[in-house]
């Protein structure tokens, strides 16, 4: 461009080469446009609604993104969310033990995540196929666990308030806001895994096994171990999602979480994670989840006459593709 190198230019370079550039840019554009043109969009109510709607998907997306960066998929997370929620429900509703609930809600999905990983490294079948299989197997396990029954309670013990209660400290300060403690869990986990990914040796290994597995192997990285650990992370975070879900809605059923696996992959991809592995970020994935949530809210609020209220998901789909095209364009320029 021939312009003199300035400090701003350096910041721009830094921005455009960052994996969050695409989703952040899209997010800013959409927020500005929606705020200007969509009635009721620029309000604390819709902001907190967008965030609340993204918390459960967002939590699942963190684990899915870790796995995708290392080059693998986990399609079983939706089923694991239900298993986590049932485990937590059994502990807290039937045995009145928050500790047992948390242990069941996290450990069963973690073990099932490990099984995903072990089948994958043991057989060499692509993880897409392995977890497509376990998606159904684990949903079957939900049937076994639950006997097909809905579990619902009307009690509100402290443990539910901790995982997903009202964040009234904040809500009372901002009129119209309706934040929940699940937001803190999401931000905490995002920060934790972003740190692991970018500041630890393990994080380097994750990028390496996704981007260049042979090279990583040559460098002495235990590729299989990294992938199995990521499957466990993905399963555990799905379980945590189940705990958050049950803590707010105090209700879990056999179909709970079905379809979440695809929302998570969509969020990760919109957030700049490559389907082929080796690139991506947790912040980006979180932005991806928020972006999809924003679009959904925007489309509903726009109240477009020819798009009935039972068909707005199609508009979200179109926009997911648009966001990825923008990501790719930015990446090629960077």
């Amino acid at each position: 461009m021939g312009a003199p190198r300035t400090k701003e230019k350096n910041l721009w370079d830094l921005f455009i080469t960052s994996p969050v550039a695409g989703p952040l840019a899209t997010m800013i554009v959409i927020w500005v446009v929606f705020s200007l043109f969509v009635p009721h969009f620029a309000s604390m109510r819709s902001v907190s609604g967008i965030i609340n709607a993204a918390t459960l998907t967002g939590m699942v997306t963190i684990g899915v993104t870790m796995l995708m960066i290392s080059g693998e998929f986990d399609l079983s997370v939706g089923s694991l969310v239900a298993i986590g929620a049932y485990g937590f429900a059994f502990g807290t509703v039937f045995w009145h033990s928050p500790l047992l609930g948390i242990v069941l809600g996290l450990f069963i999905p973690a073990i099932l995540g490990a099984i995903n990983g072990l089948i994958f490294v043991g057989t060499g079948i692509p993880s897409f196929i392995v977890t497509l299989g376990t998606l159904y197997i684990y949903r079957g396990a939900v049937w076994l666990l639950s006997g097909g029954q809905l579990i619902q309670t009307l009690e509100r013990p402290l443990v539910y308030q901790i995982f997903n209660g009202r964040l009234d400290v904040v809500n009372n300060l901002i009129p119209g806001a309706n934040f929940r403690t699940s937001l803190l869990w999401l931000l905490g986990m995002t920060a934790l895994f972003q740190y692991i990914l970018t500041r630890t040796a393990y994080g380097n290994h994750v990028f390496a096994v996704g981007g260049n597995p042979l090279g990583a192997l040559a460098q002495g990285v235990n590729v299989r171990r990294v992938k199995v650990i990521n499957f466990i992370i993905s399963g555990t975070l799905a379980g945590l999602t189940g705990i958050l879900l049950f803590s707010q809605y105090r209700s879990v059923r056999v179909a709970t979480g079905a379809g979440m696996e695809l929302s998570a992959i969509a969020a990760a991809v919109v957030g700049g994670t490559l389907l082929t592995g080796g690139a991506g970020s947790i912040w980006g994935a979180l932005l991806g989840a928020l972006l999809i949530s924003t679009l959904r809210t925007g489309v509903i609020l726009m109240n477009i006459p020819f798009i009935p209220a039972d068909n707005f998901e199609a508009v979200v789909g179109v926009t997911i593709i648009g966001a990825v095209i923008l990501n790719n364009w930015l990446r090629s320029r960077g």
Binding site: G49, I50, N52, A53, A54, T55, L56, T57, G78, S182, L245, Q248, Y249, S251, A255, T256, G257, A258, G259, M260, S263, S293, R296, T297
Partner: peptide
């Protein structure tokens, strides 16, 4: 099937 999404 995601109650948080449904609520919003």
């Amino acid at each position: 099937n995601d109650p948080a999404e449904s609520q919003t």
